[in-house]
Design a binder for these strands. Structure first.
Length: 325
DNA sequence: GCGACAG
DNA sequence: ATCTTGTCGC
């Protein structure tokens, strides 16, 4: 029997892992937000760690997590003074709301499989498969995909538009959120939604020739933003359009509306910053089976009044509308 | 003073 | 992304 090749995406349980990591810190010892992020596999996750712990102080010994400076932390319903008191009761010396000396109580000997490390390796494999080439010039349809969130539920939208940006039809999917937002790992949060939504469009007989993604393509530290990841998995032309700069350098001083300038990362041009409104700049980058020149041309051709190209404007509007309903 | 990291 | 008062600009 022939099996249909289905895109594999194994999403690790980051919150569960973090919960188990915090539980490993013994009474009388402390760790840091950064050490926990490293135990997850990437210090870049430190903001997620701090935010998540802040809202889970009631069920975990979050008082044992302090700043790298030794300063005690805080949480949604706990002031630093309360955490300091809890630490003292466990025998930790705290002075002026700082653990002193931190090194005497510091714990980082975590048992962990560093899930983000595995994801980085996976991203490397995807990045190796990227093909940068001109977009098909005979594209008839261009889709836009975007997401919105409602508590623990995520909404994914795929709108298929004609070459002028007029919407033809769209598909909406809903899923439980499986992965938090961590910079450079956006794919693991939103790709499941987009895969389902695009597949839904496919099943309705709407097969987009190019997909615009709210996020980056190769404009990414490892050249594998969500547009690239989606494109490689589906082997379909994709272009990333972000509203803020993730990484790289570009001088946007004095740009006129419609003008674009290269975004350079480690000496390589990975995208374009384009001014699309009085005070709006978007960041365009090839996802897969696209190059910068034709990506900029395509986005330009789909720009109307909005700072975003029409398929993405529609996708965003539909996701917001569904969320509000 | 650095870094300032998509959604 | 979401929450969210007053504030800034057209």
């Amino acid at each position: 029997m022939i099996e249909k090749k289905v895109p594999k995406l194994e999403i690790p349980d980051i919150e569960g892992t973090l919960r188990r990591l915090v539980a490993q810190v013994p009474p009388g010892r402390v760790t840091t937000y950064k050490a926990l992020a490293e135990a997850l596999g990437d210090p870049a996750a430190v903001r997620f760690v701090a935010n998540w712990l802040s809202s889970h102080a009631h069920e975990l010994p979050v008082h044992r997590v302090v700043h790298a400076s030794g300063a005690v932390g805080k949480a949604e319903f706990a002031e630093p003074a309360e955490f300091a008191e809890r630490l003292r009761r466990e025998g930790v010396r705290v002075e002026g709301l700082k653990v002193k000396p931190l090194i005497r109580y510091f714990f980082a000997d975590f048992k962990t499989d560093r899930p983000l490390e595995r994801l980085r390796r996976e991203q490397g494999e995807i990045a190796r498969q990227v093909r940068l080439e001109p977009l098909p010039q005979d594209a008839k349809t261009v889709a836009g995909v975007d997401a919105a969130y409602l508590d623990s539920e995520a909404i994914g939208i795929c709108v298929v538009c004609d070459r002028e940006g007029g919407p033809l039809d769209y598909v909406e999917v809903r899923q439980e959120v499986q992965f938090p937002y961590i910079p450079t790992y956006l794919s693991y949060r939103e790709l499941p939604l987009y895969l389902a939504a695009v597949q839904g469009a496919e099943e309705k007989g709407l097969s987009p020739d190019v997909i615009l993604v709210d996020g980056n393509g190769i404009l990414h530290p490892r050249r594998v933003g969500i547009a690239t990841h989606l494109g490689v998995i589906l082997d379909r032309p994709t272009v990333g359009v972000a509203k803020r700069l993730l990484c790289g350098e570009v001088n946007t001083e004095g740009m006129t509306i419609g003008e674009w300038r290269p975004v350079v990362l480690e000496g390589e041009t990975v995208g374009a910053a384009m001014r699309t409104g009085r005070n709006r700049t978007i960041f365009i980058s090839p996802g897969h089976r696209a190059d910068l020149k034709t990506s900029v041309e395509l986005v330009t051709s789909l720009l109307k009044e909005d700072p975003l190209p029409e398929p993405l404007r529609w996708a965003h509007a539909l996701a917001s509308e569904s969320r509000a309903a």
